[in-house]
Design a protein around this nucleic acid. Structure first.
Lengths: 141, 141
DNA sequence: TTGCTCATGTCAGTATCCTCACATACAATC
DNA sequence: GATTGTATGTGAGGATACTGACATGAGCAA
């Protein structure tokens, strides 16, 4: 019988779904979606990253990422050269406005995540992170 | 500084995304999506549930659930009366074929979840479940 | 050089899911 | 009985993400 395993997949989905919902609510005043935030967040971690690499980091396709990047470029939160220095990859970077928007978004997102972890001790949170990381490793090819 | 919190949200998304991907791959031979499986799974747990309640359990809208249910009805995996005995809720139940399909799907899904948890001890898995449940509780309204 | 492979960007079409909106049916209250 | 609130099913439209396909550019090997 499998009475524990299915619950874990469901719990994972439930937690992720709720987190996404709360993040969306929190980011609404900034007119940013969770996808937008993730994009900006990754862009700060890896300035000059290509759209395709960014897509892999955020679990969407290149096509979706290019649409999203174009939205962010239109809002002048991100810049990308018209032509590549080498190869086809166009390095994307945050503009000062994008950097400021990310700061504001990060504060809101941090509050949501703190709420999510409010019932856990730091040790519990660390254990949760280790457990999730182990799941990711096991499912990766 | 928030150097741990963001990682947990990202880990959660990463784990859920990978699990969804692997489940989709595993269910492909049965021509079922993860959403289909979740629907059938819940239908077994709560026979006669309404589409709206089913939607809440599976984190989609009523509209999406009704579309999905219609697909499953067309494939004769689910039945639903044309008219309700009382109220508007139409109780959905698995057909024998749906029951068999779920059995087959469950075996494939269980294998994926076992793979996901393969690096964890039973105690680790239980701790992970408790941690996720605590996150869900904290994020629930 | 030539050919092969791989990664990136982009276009077209499709599928899925969502929001908004409305009609219906029961329960509770006055 | 009338009204209000809540829950369900359904339809229309739009937003988003996906699959499939193609051209371009770099790297590598023969």
């Amino acid at each position: 019988m499998s009475n524990l395993s299915p619950q874990l997949g469901y719990l994972l989905k439930h937690a992720q779904s709720l987190l996404h919902l709360r993040m969306d609510e929190a980011l609404k005043p900034l007119d940013l979606t969770v996808s937008h935030y993730s994009c900006l967040y990754r862009l700060r971690l890896e300035p000059g990253i290509s759209a395709a690499a960014l897509a892999r980091r955020t679990f969407v396709t290149r096509q979706s990422m290019n649409v999203m990047l174009q939205q962010l470029i239109d809002r002048e939160l991100v810049t990308r050269p018209a032509q590549a220095d080498s190869g086809r990859a166009l390095p994307a970077v945050l503009t000062p406005a994008g950097d400021a928007a990310l700061d504001a978004a990060q504060a809101l997102v941090d509050a949501v995540e703190q709420r999510m972890l409010s019932a856990l001790t730091p040790g519990d949170s660390a254990a949760l992170a280790r457990g999730l990381a182990a799941c990711v490793d096991s499912l990766a090819e």
